[in-house]
Simulated assay, not measured.
Amino acid sequence: MEILQALFFPPEQPGGVSSMIPYVQERFNKAGWPMEMFSLPKRLRGKGQEEVTFNTFDVAQFAGNPIVDKYVQTYRDYIWWTRMRIKRSYDLIHAHHPIAALAMKKLYPETPLVMTIHSSYERELILNGKIQPDGPEHRFLTSIYGELEETVDRLLTVSESFRNYMVPYIQRPDEVKVIANGYDERRFKPISHENAVPQLITVCRLVPAKGLDILLHACADLKQRGFNFVLHIIGDGPIREELEQLAVELELYDDIIFYGYMLHPEEFMPFFDVFVLPSRAEAFGSVFAEAALCWLALVGTDVGGISEQIEDGVNGLLVPPDQPAALADALEKVLSDPTYRYNLARAGWEKAKKAYSLTRVISELKQVYTEACPNTK
Protein backbone atom coordinates (compact mmCIF):
# COMPACT_ATOMS: atom_id res chain seq x y z
CA MET A 1 0.00 0.00 0.00
CA GLU A 2 1.43 3.40 -1.04
CA ILE A 3 0.37 6.21 1.29
CA LEU A 4 0.58 10.00 1.15
CA GLN A 5 0.64 11.97 4.39
CA ALA A 6 -0.86 15.37 3.51
CA LEU A 7 0.19 18.02 6.01
CA PHE A 8 -0.53 21.74 6.09
CA PHE A 9 2.88 23.36 6.57
CA PRO A 10 6.20 21.48 6.36
CA PRO A 11 6.90 19.11 9.27
CA GLU A 12 9.66 21.25 10.75
CA GLN A 13 6.96 23.52 12.15
CA PRO A 14 6.33 23.08 15.91
CA GLY A 15 3.41 20.98 17.09
CA GLY A 16 2.10 17.46 17.52
CA VAL A 17 2.05 16.64 13.80
CA SER A 18 5.71 17.53 13.38
CA SER A 19 6.57 15.57 16.51
CA MET A 20 5.07 12.40 15.09
CA ILE A 21 4.50 12.14 11.32
CA PRO A 22 8.16 12.04 10.15
CA TYR A 23 8.74 9.14 12.56
CA VAL A 24 5.54 7.42 11.42
CA GLN A 25 6.84 7.70 7.86
CA GLU A 26 10.17 6.17 8.84
CA ARG A 27 8.51 3.19 10.55
CA PHE A 28 6.08 2.52 7.68
CA ASN A 29 8.83 2.70 5.07
CA LYS A 30 10.95 0.22 7.03
CA ALA A 31 7.94 -2.11 7.25
CA GLY A 32 7.53 -2.06 3.46
CA TRP A 33 4.57 0.34 3.34
CA PRO A 34 5.88 3.16 1.08
CA MET A 35 4.91 6.53 2.52
CA GLU A 36 5.57 10.11 1.37
CA MET A 37 4.82 13.52 2.89
CA PHE A 38 3.33 16.54 1.17
CA SER A 39 2.73 20.07 2.45
CA LEU A 40 2.14 23.66 1.42
CA PRO A 41 5.20 25.96 1.40
CA LYS A 42 4.68 28.54 4.12
CA ARG A 43 5.33 31.52 1.84
CA LEU A 44 3.05 30.41 -0.98
CA ARG A 45 0.10 32.79 -1.05
CA GLY A 46 -2.48 33.98 -3.57
CA LYS A 47 -1.75 31.50 -6.37
CA GLY A 48 -4.97 29.53 -6.48
CA GLN A 49 -7.96 30.78 -8.47
CA GLU A 50 -10.23 27.75 -7.97
CA GLU A 51 -13.91 28.41 -7.35
CA VAL A 52 -14.65 27.13 -3.84
CA THR A 53 -17.90 25.44 -2.93
CA PHE A 54 -18.84 23.17 -0.04
CA ASN A 55 -21.42 20.41 -0.01
CA THR A 56 -22.90 21.00 3.43
CA PHE A 57 -23.14 24.81 3.67
CA ASP A 58 -23.05 27.93 1.51
CA VAL A 59 -19.67 29.62 1.84
CA ALA A 60 -20.98 32.71 0.01
CA GLN A 61 -22.70 33.88 3.19
CA PHE A 62 -19.25 34.49 4.72
CA ALA A 63 -17.77 36.36 1.75
CA GLY A 64 -15.89 39.52 2.68
CA ASN A 65 -14.85 38.32 6.12
CA PRO A 66 -11.03 38.63 6.27
CA ILE A 67 -10.40 35.44 8.25
CA VAL A 68 -12.78 33.38 6.15
CA ASP A 69 -11.43 34.85 2.91
CA LYS A 70 -7.86 33.99 3.97
CA TYR A 71 -8.89 30.43 4.84
CA VAL A 72 -10.66 29.96 1.50
CA GLN A 73 -7.69 31.42 -0.38
CA THR A 74 -5.35 29.01 1.40
CA TYR A 75 -7.64 26.19 0.29
CA ARG A 76 -7.32 27.45 -3.30
CA ASP A 77 -3.54 27.66 -2.92
CA TYR A 78 -3.35 24.10 -1.60
CA ILE A 79 -5.29 22.86 -4.64
CA TRP A 80 -3.03 24.84 -6.99
CA TRP A 81 0.15 23.56 -5.35
CA THR A 82 -1.08 19.96 -5.30
CA ARG A 83 -1.86 20.09 -9.02
CA MET A 84 1.59 21.53 -9.65
CA ARG A 85 3.55 19.02 -7.61
CA ILE A 86 1.77 15.67 -7.45
CA LYS A 87 2.00 13.71 -10.70
CA ARG A 88 1.17 10.23 -9.49
CA SER A 89 -1.53 8.34 -7.59
CA TYR A 90 -1.54 6.75 -4.15
CA ASP A 91 -3.53 3.93 -2.64
CA LEU A 92 -4.52 6.09 0.34
CA ILE A 93 -4.16 9.67 1.54
CA HIS A 94 -3.97 10.57 5.23
CA ALA A 95 -4.57 14.29 5.78
CA HIS A 96 -3.70 16.17 8.97
CA HIS A 97 -5.44 19.50 8.34
CA PRO A 98 -8.95 20.29 7.06
CA ILE A 99 -7.61 22.25 4.08
CA ALA A 100 -5.33 19.39 3.08
CA ALA A 101 -8.18 16.89 3.40
CA LEU A 102 -10.70 18.89 1.38
CA ALA A 103 -8.18 19.76 -1.33
CA MET A 104 -6.98 16.18 -1.72
CA LYS A 105 -10.50 14.77 -1.88
CA LYS A 106 -11.47 17.34 -4.49
CA LEU A 107 -8.54 16.38 -6.70
CA TYR A 108 -8.55 12.63 -6.01
CA PRO A 109 -12.19 11.74 -5.25
CA GLU A 110 -11.66 8.01 -5.86
CA THR A 111 -8.70 7.69 -3.46
CA PRO A 112 -9.62 6.65 0.10
CA LEU A 113 -8.90 9.55 2.43
CA VAL A 114 -8.38 9.40 6.19
CA MET A 115 -8.40 12.68 8.12
CA THR A 116 -6.98 13.32 11.61
CA ILE A 117 -8.21 16.49 13.30
CA HIS A 118 -5.42 17.58 15.63
CA SER A 119 -6.73 20.87 17.00
CA SER A 120 -9.41 23.54 16.89
CA TYR A 121 -8.49 26.65 14.92
CA GLU A 122 -11.67 28.45 15.95
CA ARG A 123 -11.12 27.80 19.65
CA GLU A 124 -7.56 29.07 19.38
CA LEU A 125 -8.76 32.23 17.64
CA ILE A 126 -11.36 32.83 20.36
CA LEU A 127 -8.86 32.33 23.19
CA ASN A 128 -6.35 34.55 21.43
CA GLY A 129 -8.94 37.31 21.14
CA LYS A 130 -9.11 37.24 17.33
CA ILE A 131 -12.78 36.27 16.91
CA GLN A 132 -15.97 36.20 18.98
CA PRO A 133 -17.92 33.06 19.93
CA ASP A 134 -20.83 32.47 17.54
CA GLY A 135 -19.53 35.15 15.18
CA PRO A 136 -19.29 34.53 11.41
CA GLU A 137 -15.73 33.18 11.60
CA HIS A 138 -16.71 30.78 14.36
CA ARG A 139 -19.75 29.56 12.41
CA PHE A 140 -17.67 29.07 9.26
CA LEU A 141 -14.89 27.14 10.99
CA THR A 142 -17.24 24.88 12.92
CA SER A 143 -19.16 24.20 9.69
CA ILE A 144 -15.94 22.69 8.34
CA TYR A 145 -16.34 19.73 10.73
CA GLY A 146 -19.61 18.75 9.05
CA GLU A 147 -18.02 19.20 5.63
CA LEU A 148 -15.18 16.89 6.62
CA GLU A 149 -17.60 14.28 7.94
CA GLU A 150 -19.41 14.21 4.59
CA THR A 151 -16.26 14.36 2.47
CA VAL A 152 -13.59 12.06 3.92
CA ASP A 153 -13.74 8.28 4.23
CA ARG A 154 -12.63 8.02 7.85
CA LEU A 155 -12.43 10.74 10.51
CA LEU A 156 -9.92 10.48 13.38
CA THR A 157 -8.95 12.74 16.25
CA VAL A 158 -6.37 12.72 19.04
CA SER A 159 -8.41 12.66 22.27
CA GLU A 160 -11.81 11.75 23.67
CA SER A 161 -12.10 15.36 24.78
CA PHE A 162 -11.81 16.64 21.24
CA ARG A 163 -14.27 14.09 19.90
CA ASN A 164 -16.75 15.38 22.48
CA TYR A 165 -15.99 18.94 21.41
CA MET A 166 -17.01 18.09 17.84
CA VAL A 167 -20.34 16.50 18.82
CA PRO A 168 -22.49 19.62 18.14
CA TYR A 169 -21.01 20.02 14.68
CA ILE A 170 -21.23 16.52 13.20
CA GLN A 171 -23.92 13.90 12.68
CA ARG A 172 -22.07 10.67 13.55
CA PRO A 173 -19.62 11.32 16.40
CA ASP A 174 -19.55 7.63 17.36
CA GLU A 175 -17.83 6.90 14.05
CA VAL A 176 -14.90 9.20 14.87
CA LYS A 177 -11.96 7.07 16.01
CA VAL A 178 -9.54 8.36 18.65
CA ILE A 179 -5.85 7.65 18.09
CA ALA A 180 -3.74 9.54 20.61
CA ASN A 181 -0.38 10.79 19.40
CA GLY A 182 2.69 8.62 19.83
CA TYR A 183 6.41 9.30 20.00
CA ASP A 184 9.62 7.56 19.02
CA GLU A 185 11.36 6.81 22.32
CA ARG A 186 14.76 7.13 20.67
CA ARG A 187 14.26 10.90 20.62
CA PHE A 188 13.96 11.14 24.41
CA LYS A 189 16.92 10.48 26.66
CA PRO A 190 16.29 11.17 30.36
CA ILE A 191 19.45 12.36 32.09
CA SER A 192 20.23 11.91 35.77
CA HIS A 193 20.97 15.34 37.23
CA GLU A 194 20.70 17.46 40.36
CA ASN A 195 19.93 21.15 40.04
CA ALA A 196 20.77 23.29 43.06
CA VAL A 197 17.88 25.57 42.07
CA PRO A 198 14.75 23.89 40.64
CA GLN A 199 14.42 24.44 36.91
CA LEU A 200 10.95 24.94 35.39
CA ILE A 201 10.40 24.72 31.66
CA THR A 202 7.53 25.41 29.30
CA VAL A 203 7.43 24.90 25.52
CA CYS A 204 4.69 26.48 23.41
CA ARG A 205 3.73 29.18 20.97
CA LEU A 206 3.56 32.49 22.80
CA VAL A 207 -0.15 33.18 22.34
CA PRO A 208 -2.88 33.92 24.92
CA ALA A 209 -4.39 30.43 24.60
CA LYS A 210 -1.34 28.93 26.33
CA GLY A 211 -1.94 30.84 29.57
CA LEU A 212 1.63 32.04 30.12
CA ASP A 213 0.30 35.20 31.76
CA ILE A 214 -1.16 32.92 34.43
CA LEU A 215 2.19 31.13 34.74
CA LEU A 216 4.05 34.39 35.32
CA HIS A 217 1.59 35.51 37.99
CA ALA A 218 1.92 32.09 39.66
CA CYS A 219 5.71 32.41 39.58
CA ALA A 220 5.49 35.86 41.16
CA ASP A 221 3.39 34.29 43.93
CA LEU A 222 5.99 31.55 44.39
CA LYS A 223 8.76 34.10 44.66
CA GLN A 224 6.84 35.98 47.34
CA ARG A 225 6.53 32.69 49.23
CA GLY A 226 10.33 32.48 49.27
CA PHE A 227 10.93 29.82 46.61
CA ASN A 228 13.93 30.00 44.31
CA PHE A 229 13.59 28.73 40.73
CA VAL A 230 14.41 29.51 37.12
CA LEU A 231 11.69 29.45 34.46
CA HIS A 232 12.81 28.59 30.93
CA ILE A 233 10.37 29.58 28.16
CA ILE A 234 10.98 27.93 24.78
CA GLY A 235 8.89 29.25 21.92
CA ASP A 236 8.01 32.43 20.14
CA GLY A 237 4.86 34.24 19.12
CA PRO A 238 2.96 37.51 18.97
CA ILE A 239 2.80 38.14 22.74
CA ARG A 240 6.49 37.60 23.54
CA GLU A 241 7.12 41.31 24.10
CA GLU A 242 4.01 41.53 26.27
CA LEU A 243 5.17 38.58 28.38
CA GLU A 244 8.65 40.04 28.76
CA GLN A 245 7.13 43.31 29.96
CA LEU A 246 4.91 41.43 32.40
CA ALA A 247 8.00 39.64 33.75
CA VAL A 248 9.60 43.02 34.40
CA GLU A 249 6.47 44.36 36.13
CA LEU A 250 6.27 41.27 38.35
CA GLU A 251 10.00 41.56 39.19
CA LEU A 252 10.61 38.17 37.60
CA TYR A 253 12.80 39.05 34.65
CA ASP A 254 16.00 37.81 36.31
CA ASP A 255 14.29 34.49 37.07
CA ILE A 256 13.14 33.79 33.50
CA ILE A 257 14.99 32.96 30.30
CA PHE A 258 13.20 33.52 26.98
CA TYR A 259 14.82 31.34 24.32
CA GLY A 260 12.60 31.92 21.30
CA TYR A 261 11.80 29.15 18.83
CA MET A 262 13.77 25.90 19.10
CA LEU A 263 13.45 23.07 16.55
CA HIS A 264 14.19 20.14 18.91
CA PRO A 265 13.39 21.15 22.49
CA GLU A 266 13.34 17.49 23.56
CA GLU A 267 17.15 17.56 23.34
CA PHE A 268 17.18 20.34 25.93
CA MET A 269 14.31 19.24 28.17
CA PRO A 270 15.95 16.38 30.16
CA PHE A 271 18.16 18.82 32.08
CA PHE A 272 15.16 20.42 33.81
CA ASP A 273 12.93 19.36 36.70
CA VAL A 274 9.33 20.42 36.08
CA PHE A 275 7.32 20.96 32.91
CA VAL A 276 4.46 23.41 33.35
CA LEU A 277 1.93 24.73 30.84
CA PRO A 278 -1.37 26.31 32.02
CA SER A 279 -3.18 26.12 28.65
CA ARG A 280 -6.72 27.39 28.38
CA ALA A 281 -7.51 24.64 25.84
CA GLU A 282 -5.64 21.71 24.24
CA ALA A 283 -6.92 19.06 21.85
CA PHE A 284 -4.13 16.74 23.02
CA GLY A 285 -1.09 18.61 24.33
CA SER A 286 1.77 16.68 22.73
CA VAL A 287 4.41 18.50 24.71
CA PHE A 288 3.18 16.93 27.98
CA ALA A 289 3.85 13.43 26.65
CA GLU A 290 7.25 14.58 25.37
CA ALA A 291 8.13 16.11 28.74
CA ALA A 292 7.02 12.94 30.52
CA LEU A 293 9.32 10.87 28.29
CA CYS A 294 12.14 13.20 29.36
CA TRP A 295 11.34 12.27 32.99
CA LEU A 296 10.02 15.69 34.07
CA ALA A 297 7.28 16.22 36.64
CA LEU A 298 4.16 17.55 34.89
CA VAL A 299 1.93 20.44 35.95
CA GLY A 300 -0.94 21.35 33.64
CA THR A 301 -4.50 22.55 33.48
CA ASP A 302 -7.57 20.34 33.69
CA VAL A 303 -8.61 20.93 30.08
CA GLY A 304 -8.92 18.83 26.92
CA GLY A 305 -6.30 16.24 26.20
CA ILE A 306 -4.08 17.34 29.11
CA SER A 307 -6.51 15.85 31.62
CA GLU A 308 -6.50 12.59 29.67
CA GLN A 309 -2.73 12.38 30.01
CA ILE A 310 -2.42 13.42 33.66
CA GLU A 311 -4.08 11.70 36.61
CA ASP A 312 -3.88 14.36 39.30
CA GLY A 313 -1.47 13.43 42.07
CA VAL A 314 -0.40 10.21 40.34
CA ASN A 315 1.65 11.11 37.28
CA GLY A 316 1.40 14.89 37.47
CA LEU A 317 -0.68 17.71 38.88
CA LEU A 318 -3.78 19.32 37.39
CA VAL A 319 -5.16 22.76 38.22
CA PRO A 320 -8.14 24.74 36.92
CA PRO A 321 -7.35 27.13 34.06
CA ASP A 322 -6.96 30.85 34.74
CA GLN A 323 -6.22 30.41 38.44
CA PRO A 324 -2.67 31.56 39.25
CA ALA A 325 -2.98 30.85 42.99
CA ALA A 326 -3.93 27.22 42.32
CA LEU A 327 -1.04 26.91 39.88
CA ALA A 328 1.34 28.39 42.45
CA ASP A 329 0.11 25.85 45.03
CA ALA A 330 0.77 22.97 42.61
CA LEU A 331 4.22 24.27 41.76
CA GLU A 332 4.99 24.67 45.46
CA LYS A 333 4.27 20.96 45.97
CA VAL A 334 6.80 19.87 43.36
CA LEU A 335 9.41 22.49 44.25
CA SER A 336 9.36 21.83 47.99
CA ASP A 337 9.58 18.02 47.87
CA PRO A 338 12.17 16.54 45.49
CA THR A 339 11.10 12.97 46.33
CA TYR A 340 7.48 13.73 45.46
CA ARG A 341 8.64 15.44 42.27
CA TYR A 342 10.72 12.41 41.33
CA ASN A 343 7.84 9.99 41.94
CA LEU A 344 5.48 12.06 39.80
CA ALA A 345 8.07 12.20 37.01
CA ARG A 346 8.68 8.45 37.17
CA ALA A 347 4.94 7.68 37.01
CA GLY A 348 4.57 10.12 34.11
CA TRP A 349 7.42 8.44 32.24
CA GLU A 350 5.95 4.99 32.76
CA LYS A 351 2.51 6.03 31.49
CA ALA A 352 3.92 7.91 28.49
CA LYS A 353 6.05 4.91 27.46
CA LYS A 354 3.02 2.65 27.56
CA ALA A 355 0.20 4.89 26.33
CA TYR A 356 2.02 7.10 23.81
CA SER A 357 4.41 4.70 22.11
CA LEU A 358 4.87 5.11 18.40
CA THR A 359 4.51 1.34 18.02
CA ARG A 360 0.92 1.57 19.26
CA VAL A 361 0.16 4.38 16.79
CA ILE A 362 1.63 2.40 13.89
CA SER A 363 -0.47 -0.63 14.78
CA GLU A 364 -3.69 1.39 15.00
CA LEU A 365 -2.99 3.26 11.78
CA LYS A 366 -2.29 0.02 9.91
CA GLN A 367 -5.71 -1.22 10.96
CA VAL A 368 -7.41 2.00 9.79
CA TYR A 369 -5.53 1.98 6.49
CA THR A 370 -6.34 -1.68 5.86
CA GLU A 371 -10.04 -1.08 6.56
CA ALA A 372 -10.03 1.90 4.17
CA CYS A 373 -8.25 -0.11 1.42
CA PRO A 374 -9.31 -3.74 2.01
CA ASN A 375 -8.14 -4.90 -1.42
CA THR A 376 -4.70 -3.29 -1.30
CA LYS A 377 -1.66 -4.96 0.22
Rank of each mutant, 00 (worst) to 15 (best):
3 I>G: 00
3 I>P: 03
4 L>K: 04
10 P>E: 15
16 G>W: 04
21 I>Y: 00
23 Y>S: 12
24 V>D: 00
25 Q>H: 04
26 E>Y: 13
29 N>F: 05
30 K>W: 01
33 W>R: 10
36 E>S: 14
40 L>M: 09
41 P>C: 15
54 F>W: 09
55 N>Y: 04
62 F>C: 06
63 A>Q: 14
69 D>C: 14
71 Y>V: 06
71 Y>T: 15
77 D>L: 08
78 Y>G: 10
78 Y>S: 07
81 W>D: 12
81 W>N: 14
83 R>T: 09
85 R>H: 12
90 Y>L: 04
93 I>F: 14
103 A>S: 14
108 Y>Q: 09
114 V>W: 05
118 H>Y: 11
119 S>F: 02
125 L>R: 15
132 Q>E: 11
138 H>G: 03
140 F>L: 09
145 Y>H: 12
147 E>N: 02
152 V>S: 01
160 E>L: 08
164 N>W: 11
167 V>W: 03
168 P>N: 08
169 Y>T: 10
171 Q>V: 05
172 R>C: 04
175 E>L: 14
177 K>F: 15
178 V>C: 08
184 D>P: 02
192 S>I: 09
196 A>H: 13
196 A>V: 03
198 P>D: 05
204 C>W: 02
204 C>I: 08
208 P>W: 01
208 P>C: 00
210 K>T: 08
212 L>F: 07
212 L>R: 04
221 D>F: 00
229 F>C: 04
230 V>E: 11
233 I>D: 02
234 I>M: 12
235 G>Y: 09
237 G>S: 14
241 E>F: 00
243 L>Q: 01
243 L>S: 07
249 E>F: 00
252 L>Y: 08
252 L>F: 02
252 L>V: 06
252 L>S: 03
252 L>M: 07
257 I>A: 03
259 Y>K: 04
259 Y>L: 00
271 F>G: 09
271 F>K: 13
281 A>I: 01
281 A>D: 07
282 E>G: 08
292 A>Q: 06
292 A>Y: 01
293 L>Y: 05
297 A>C: 09
299 V>K: 01
300 G>C: 02
303 V>T: 11
304 G>P: 07
305 G>N: 11
305 G>P: 03
311 E>A: 10
313 G>I: 12
314 V>Q: 08
318 L>M: 13
321 P>Q: 14
321 P>K: 14
325 A>V: 13
328 A>H: 04
330 A>V: 00
333 K>D: 12
335 L>N: 04
335 L>Q: 05
347 A>Y: 00
348 G>H: 08
349 W>F: 15
354 K>Q: 14
359 T>L: 12
359 T>F: 07
364 E>L: 14
369 Y>N: 03
375 N>I: 01
